[in-house]
Simulated assay, not measured.
Amino acid sequence: MKAVDVRAMSEDQLNDELLKLKKEQFNLRFQQATGQLEKTSRVKTVRRDIARVKTIMRESAKAKA
């Protein structure tokens, strides 16, 4: 996910995307704990996507204030 794509999303879409990413992160952690995780690099990618979405949400909130 690119920052340009995230910036194009509305606030509701950002909240939905954040929720989806957090669920995926939980599932990946669960798979890793049980030894079923195949793509270990996906954990890092999801963490960065969560940080990217949170950062852009914060930037847009500051711009409104």
Rank of each mutant, 00 (worst) to 15 (best):
M1E: 12
M1T: 15
M1L: 07
A3Q: 04
A3W: 03
A3C: 09
V4N: 11
V4R: 03
D5S: 10
V6E: 11
V6N: 03
R7A: 15
A8H: 07
A8S: 01
M9F: 07
S10A: 00
S10W: 00
D12H: 06
D12I: 04
D12L: 01
Q13W: 14
Q13I: 12
Q13E: 12
N15W: 05
N15I: 14
N15V: 10
D16S: 12
D16Y: 15
L18I: 10
L18A: 07
L19I: 06
L19W: 09
L19E: 08
K20E: 15
L21F: 00
K23V: 01
E24L: 08
E24T: 05
Q25S: 09
N27M: 05
N27L: 11
R29N: 08
R29W: 01
R29Y: 01
Q31K: 02
Q32P: 09
Q32Y: 05
T34G: 11
T34I: 14
T34R: 02
G35I: 03
G35M: 00
Q36T: 05
K39T: 11
K39L: 12
T40K: 08
S41N: 09
V43E: 06
V43G: 09
K44W: 07
T45N: 06
V46K: 00
V46C: 01
V46F: 00
R47P: 11
R48L: 14
I50T: 03
A51T: 05
A51S: 14
R52H: 04
V53M: 05
K54F: 05
K54S: 15
K54M: 11
K54C: 04
T55M: 08
I56P: 08
I56T: 02
M57L: 07
M57S: 02
M57K: 08
R58H: 13
R58N: 02
E59Q: 13
E59G: 06
E59C: 12
S60V: 07
A61C: 10
A61N: 10
K62M: 04
K62I: 04
A63T: 06
K64R: 06
A65E: 13
A65C: 13
A65Q: 01
